[in-house]
């Protein structure tokens, strides 16, 4: 037990935190771009932008997650 932490555990090992961060990213994506779509709908009186925003947000989050955790 060295004072400087055990060398075999790599704190950057994606596994421990990935599941939690993934949920955060997905929520951010859906809320931000879905919210933007909702506001646009509200403003223009349409109904389509909310769905567009949600799909865009989900796609963006998944892409971001792939960049963070999936890329080798």
């Amino acid at each position: 037990m060295s004072q400087n932490g055990s060398p075999e555990t790599d704190p950057q090992d994606a596994g421990d935190g990935a599941a939690w961060s993934i949920v955060s990213y997905l929520l951010s994506g859906l809320i931000f771009w879905g919210g933007a779509g909702w506001l646009l709908d509200h403003w223009l009186g349409t109904k389509i932008f909310l769905l567009v925003g949600l799909v865009l947000g989900a796609a963006a989050s998944l892409y971001l997650i792939w960049l963070r955790y999936g890329r080798q």
């Binding site: 859906l30 809320i31 997650i65």
Partner: peptide, 29 residues
């Protein structure tokens, strides 16, 4: 094989979770 499987597992998880969150958001709006 952990290093190979881990990203795949988490991406699959993200995809499934995205659908659940879709449901949550749509239930509200």
């Amino acid at each position: 094989a952990r290093g190979v499987l881990q990203p795949i597992a988490f991406l699959g998880f993200a995809l499934a979770e995205a659908l659940a969150l879709f449901g949550l958001v749509l239930a509200f709006v």
